[in-house]
Structure formats: C-alpha cells, structure tokens
Nucleic acid binder design. Structure first.
Lengths: 205, 205
DNA sequence: GTCTATATTGTGATAGAC
DNA sequence: GTCTATCACAATATAGAC
C-alpha cells in the first residue's frame, strides 16, 4: 500500500468519525503512521483532503440509492433490496450517514460543487425518472394509492437511514427501556421496512 | 435582558448552527455583543457553556416526544399530534435535529450524563411505558397487527425527523428534480405521516 | 461586572536538509 | 519522497486594572 492511499484510508477514518471541524491533521498522520508534512505534500491542504474524502464517501452513498430505484424490478423487490443493501452498508460503516448529513448541513453548497465536479451523481441525476415513471404508472393502473414519488423516496430513506443516525438516542433511551439489543432491532427492521412501504401504498378500496 | 441570558441566547445560535468543534468563543461574544472574557466569567469554559446549551435544547426535544406518546389519546390522534407538533417545531428551529444527532454521535456519553444530571428526562424515563401498554393492549384485542412498540416509535421518529436532518439532499437532489418546494413538501407530510403509521398497523385479515 | 492585555497551547502550513 | 524544524496565527483561558 503506497503512501497516498495510506493517507486516504486514515483520513476517511478520522474525518468520518470526527467531522471536518473536529479533525486534526496530526491525528490523521498518526493513524496513517506517517509524517504530518506528507499530508500537505500529497493533498496541499486540510480542505482539499477533506473534499477528496467527502466526494468519495458521497459517491458510494447517493448513486447506490438511485441505482436500486432505477432498475426494472417491481416495487416490493426494490424496497426489499434497498432496505437490505443499506442496512448492511451502514452496519459496516456506521459513521457514514451521520457524517454526510452533518457536513451537508454545515456546507450545503458542497452538493452543488459535487454535482458540478462530476462524481457519479452527474450521470445518475436523471435516474429517479425511471422510479417516478414506475410510480405514476402503478397509480394510473390503480395498483397503488396515489402518492407523490418524492414522498415515497423520502419515506424509504427515513425508515432506513434514521435508525443509524439516531443510534445513541434509540439505543440509550428507547431500546434500553425495552431491554432490546440494537443489532436484533436493526435486523428486524430489514423485513419491516418493505412491509411498511407496501402497506402505505395499498390502494384504497 | 441581562448579560447571562444574552450570552445563552447567542451561544444557542452559534452552537446549534456550527456544533461544538466549529464554534469559536469570539463568535459567540460577537453575537452577544459583549466582551469575550465575560463568557468565561459566567460559564468558566467553552465546554460548560456548551453543556448548558445542549441540555437545554435536549430538554425541549426528548420529553415532548415521550409526553405526546404518554397521554390518553387513541393511537391515530397521537400520531397526528406528534407529526404536527414536531414538524412545526423543526420548521421554526431547523438546526435542532441535526445539532442533537451530530453531538450525540460524537459524544454518546452525554445522554448518560444528561439523564443522571436530572433534566426533564429523569422523570419521563418511565413514560414510554404508557405507550407500550397501549400498543400491547391494542394488539391483544386484535385492533392492530403485532409489531414491537420500539419499531413503531422509531418509525414515527424517522418519518418525522429525517426530512429535516437531510434537508440539503432532499431539497438539492430529490425535490429539485421534481420541481417541488421544500415547504409544501413538509406540509404534505404532516398529514401523510399519521396515515402511513396507521396503515402499517392495520390488522392482517 | 466589565474591560484590556497577555499567557499558553494548539494547529495548518511551509522551508529546506537529506 | 520523506523527514525535522519552524513560522504564523488562531483559540481557550486567565490576570489584573477599573
């Protein structure tokens, strides 16, 4: 593993956990087990290093969402696939959702710069169209109840992502009271989420 | 308005927007229009000032949740009340959810210290019991389908809070594509959320 | 209680030897 | 490419006059 990727790996670890403001360059150097000045040699400044980390992380995040929503599967299968893929991903990288949401709230303009800069989002910016069309068609045919596609997407995102962002509250207050383990709670949700999504779309008789 | 509350108001503004790591004491002093050393005169250190802000904000957050879930209304009314109260609150204080979630992820131990220290949570720690009993009773009577009360609470929290935490993504990517205003999107959700919650609980025939 | 001045340490960034 | 040494400034915190 060369120095540059070593730095990138270390930077991801530290930035993801502590955010831009909470991160010290020295801390990254320690984790990468290299000299502090090498950070500047490879990435000029803290901000440039951060941007590299952020864009890379964001690239894994958003396009996957749109990718799953874009394929040709029926609605239920999409929800199942989505809940499973994202729960697994966040389980393995617990800091990603909180990191992205926090940094985007502090610097919303980074979304714009990310889209302009290219990233994977540029190509996938048109992707929700497929999902939108699918929803509208299903509504037209009376298979599901009328609901704005945006609301459906946000429902899915909310039910899937929020439990990871709010883990300390959920674990420390809610689950603690009911004496339930966080892991089994999340596992239960993987089946629950598609079910809720489908119920919410059942046509009114 | 005396100096102490002036400082507290300013500290809330700055901490809520920038978080602990992103906040500068000078910045708070500027907003409060007082001298920097007065911050230390009244609150000894940055951390103590932050804790005062955090506990005060957290106090408005969690107990209200539990309060609404604890009253004697039927389920549907609780969901309606909840979605309305919280959407309104976050609309007026857009930084609260992101602030709390970020700081709790950085310092999960603050929940424990908050509970120990008293706050409003100490008394309300037993409150979910009422909601739990209500759910279990409804399930027993066959009025709703079996679902763990914790899952129900988290569903409600997710659907209500997440759209505020993820505003930049939702607004910049999803709504932007569909050409929808954030305000009307949120308003639509206030009615949508209780409906989803009830549908997800409809007994299986 | 409020101000000015200053101590002290931390932190991003660079210069220059090797 | 990698290291040591160091600059320049930012930031928390305190001392002490008024």
């Amino acid at each position: 593993m060369n120095t540059e990727t070593q730095i990138m790996e270390a930077a991801k670890k530290v930035f993801l956990e502590k955010g831009f403001d909470g991160t010290r360059m020295q801390n990254i150097a320690d984790v990468a087990q290299i000299n502090k000045s090498l950070l500047h040699y490879y990435y000029r400044s803290k901000e440039k290093l951060f941007d590299a980390v952020f864009n890379d992380t964001f690239s894994k995040f958003v396009p996957q969402v749109l990718g799953i929503l874009n394929n040709e599967l029926p609605l239920r299968e999409k929800f199942i696939l989505f809940a499973k893929a994202y729960s697994k991903m966040f389980f393995e990288n617990p800091f990603i959702p909180s990191f992205i949401l926090h940094e985007l709230n502090r610097h919303p303009e980074k979304i714009v710069s990310y889209i302009k800069q290219g990233g994977t989002l540029k190509n996938s910016a048109e992707i929700p169209k497929v999902f939108f069309d699918q929803i509208n068609k299903e509504i037209e045919q009376g298979n599901i109840r009328p609901m704005a596609p945006c609301q459906i997407i946000v429902n899915l995102l909310s039910l899937t992502i929020f439990p990871f962002v709010a883990r300390p509250i959920i674990e420390g207050v809610i689950l603690n009271f009911a004496n339930i383990e966080y892991n089994s709670f999340i596992n239960e949700r993987i089946d629950l989420i598609p079910s809720i999504m489908m119920e919410s779309l059942k046509p009114v008789v």
